[in-house]
């Protein structure tokens, strides 16, 4: 195990450095850089949503709302109050965390589709409120946001998100969340405070997607309420389900794949959304449990001896 961790650590640093030099020297064309940043932001959004939907089993459709909170609060801090970037990102995330608790406490009593529709409604409320607040530009939003998100910040925050959520899931708290997903009544009987864990997972998810929002705002120059529409929440959900509910590596792979797919479809002009929707349905129909199921992609799976041909994750019994 130790050797494996060391190996991963080295690989991560090598990857960081390689991309860093490639962007600095212009080896990666700007168009791919945009998508690289989108990938990082999407990974954070997907992994954080996976904590809520995949591990805790709470179907939330308002993820973009928290992203908006993180984006707006951080931009207010950097642009209007002149605070440093790091503080702004963390404040944005903290604000999303608080809103998460506020929204989570009443709504997480709901189950399944009811929760979905309540969180969807909440996302719409945030958007409509922002439309009416002139301080943040109303529907026009805020433009001219300084480009403070760079590759280093993006990389650090993406890794931190994955690392913290992975450790959370493997902790006592995480186990409690999983037990809520698998059988809420049984979990309650075992003395687990289900409301507490649901709200905890929900607001931690909100915290991280708040970071994603802040990074997004400080890369893309402009934020508008319309940016954080239901489609953004849906995109994150697609990545989670695509990757496999309860698989962090799955979410990462799916976030990369979906961003890549979207970038590739740009050449199809007006047909791109039709093809995207069609692919979505096809993939869901043929692989409803997602790429990874609930399994994680590990080095053991990639290179470990027993599986035939060394191919990844062959052992998915969950698929049937």
């Amino acid at each position: 195990m130790k050797r494996e961790n060391l190996l991963i650590g080295i690989l991560l640093i090598v990857f960081y450095a390689a991309v860093f030099f490639a962007t600095e020297t212009g080896l990666i064309p700007p168009y791919y850089q945009v998508n690289l940043y989108l990938m990082g932001i999407n990974i954070i959004a997907a992994v954080s949503l996976n904590l809520i939907v995949g591990f805790t089993g709470q179907l939330a459709l308002g993820h973009a709302g928290f992203m908006a909170v993180g984006a707006y609060i951080s931009v207010i801090l950097t642009m209007k109050l002149g605070q440093p970037f790091l503080l702004a990102v963390l404040a944005g995330a903290a604000a999303a965390f608080l809103v998460g608790i506020l929204i989570g406490l009443p709504t997480l009593r709901l189950k399944g589709d009811y929760l979905a529709i309540a969180t969807l409604g909440f996302g719409e409320i945030i958007r409509r409120l922002l439309d009416n607040i002139d301080y943040v530009g109303g529907a026009a939003g805020i433009n001219g946001i300084p480009k403070l998100t760079n590759w280093t910040w993006l990389y650090i925050f993406t890794l931190l998100t994955i690392f913290i959520i992975k450790n959370f899931v493997n902790s006592t708290h995480g186990r409690a969340c999983i037990s809520v997903r698998d059988n809420e009544i049984a979990a309650e009987t075992m003395g687990i405070n289900t409301t507490y864990y649901k709200v905890l997972a929900f607001s931690i998810g909100a915290f991280f997607v708040g970071i994603a929002g802040a990074l997004y705002a400080h890369y893309f120059f402009l934020i508008q309420p319309a940016t954080f529409s239901f489609m953004k929440s849906f995109d994150a959900l697609v990545m989670v389900v695509f990757g496999g509910l309860g698989s962090i590596t799955g979410s990462v792979i799916a976030a990369v794949a979906v961003t890549f797919m979207n970038a590739a479809l740009i050449n199809f002009g007006t047909l791109r959304m039709v093809i995207y929707a069609l692919l979505l349905v096809i993939i869901m129909v043929f692989r409803p449990q997602g790429l990874m199921g609930t399994k994680e992609l590990t080095f053991k799976r990639l290179f470990g001896g027993k599986e035939r041909g060394g191919s990844a994750n062959v052992n998915d019994k969950t698929s049937d």
């Binding site: 794949a257 890549f260 797919m261 590739a264 479809l265 740009i266 050449n267 199809f268 093809i275 692919l279 096809i282 993939i283 043929f286 692989r287 790429l291 062959v314 998915d316 698929s319 049937d320």
Partner: peptide
Amino acid sequence: MKNNKWLVVLIMMLVAALAATGCG
């Protein structure tokens, strides 16, 4: 069900290939 995963990967690669030739 294992093959489905590769089907998905295949579809994505196909899209990418089509896209690449599109701009090439």
